[in-house]
């Protein structure tokens, strides 16, 4: 059981409406590592995040995901969350009428129950809220409102990081958490992530831009294209992509695809 990996994704394939979106993704993340996934729009990055968190839009047709020695794909979304997986959504949902306080209290206590702990007392909970709000520099008024209701784009992203701070996940998936943020907000969000991280917290950062990676420095950078990870390297790859764009990746990938198809014939 004592695998050296926090998460091990093997040959993962998934389809939406019978259209294959993930075409065999493999990725291994050790505790404490930061991985960046980059790649053009539509290549399947969010779909990967959805599959890992248990959203049923995409149907897994092949492959395995082992998280801390357990079969992740057999778990419900809530079980995965309680086991320590957290997704910062690319498009956080507004939920009118559900208060942030009630939402977080329920989430925290479900997680505590899962770990065999008593629910937090009201005062301990409020103290925790206050502490984490300061950590991610989120406006106090926001947490008195309904979940994301009427929040600006930047506030929604900050709110995702606030929730991450509250739940202290083992593995955080940040899906374009930087997009739509101005440079100040980006800095706050990125520093928030760094402050939340413990040495063994792993992060998968999905992004288009190098600028977030200046703050959250990855150990590995992967490029996803057309449902596959087509290239993996160190942080220098992100810089190269920033400079050269994705076209060369596309060309290389398409070429190798052709070669592969021709070979098979």
């Amino acid at each position: 059981m004592n695998s050296e990996f926090l998460i091990q994704i093997k040959e993962l394939k998934a389809s939406i409406d019978n259209k294959e979106i993930l075409k065999g993704v493999s990725l291994e993340v050790k505790p404490g590592e930061i991985h960046a996934i980059m790649g053009p729009n539509g290549s399947g990055k969010s779909t990967l995040a959805n599959v890992l968190t248990g959203r049923e839009i995409a149907k897994v047709t092949h492959g395995t995901v082992v998280f801390e020695g357990k079969d992740l794909l057999g778990m419900s979304p809530e079980e995965r969350a309680r086991e320590g997986i957290f997704l910062s959504f690319q498009y956080p949902i507004e939920i009118p009428g559900v208060s942030m306080v009630n939402f977080m209290k329920t989430a925290i206590n479900e997680q505590r129950k899962h770990r065999g702990l008593e629910p937090l007392s009201a005062s301990d909970f409020l103290r925790l809220m206050r502490e984490k709000k300061e950590l991610v520099e989120i406006d106090s008024a926001l947490t008195n409102r309904s979940v994301n209701e009427g929040f600006s784009g930047g506030e929604k992203k900050k709110n995702e990081i606030f929730q991450m701070a509250m739940l202290e996940p083992r593995l955080a998936l940040l899906d374009e958490t930087d997009s739509g943020l101005d440079i100040d907000a980006l800095r706050i969000v990125a520093n928030g992530v760094n402050k939340i991280r413990r040495p063994d917290t792993s992060v998968i950062v999905i992004t288009h831009y190098q600028r977030l990676l200046d703050y959250i420095v990855p150990d590995f950078v992967h490029v996803m294209y057309d449902g596959r990870i087509v290239r993996s390297a160190g942080p220098e790859l992100a810089l190269e992509l920033e400079e050269r764009g994705y076209d060369w990746i596309r060309k290389e990938a398409d070429v190798s695809e052709e070669t592969w198809t021709t070979d098979r014939k």
């Binding site: 809530e78 969350a81 939920i95």
Partner: peptide, 19 residues
Amino acid sequence: YLRSRGIDEHEAKLMLMFG
């Protein structure tokens, strides 16, 4: 969204109906 934060499906439905 609610379930992805660890909230039971049944409870999440209740929360949405309440909202």
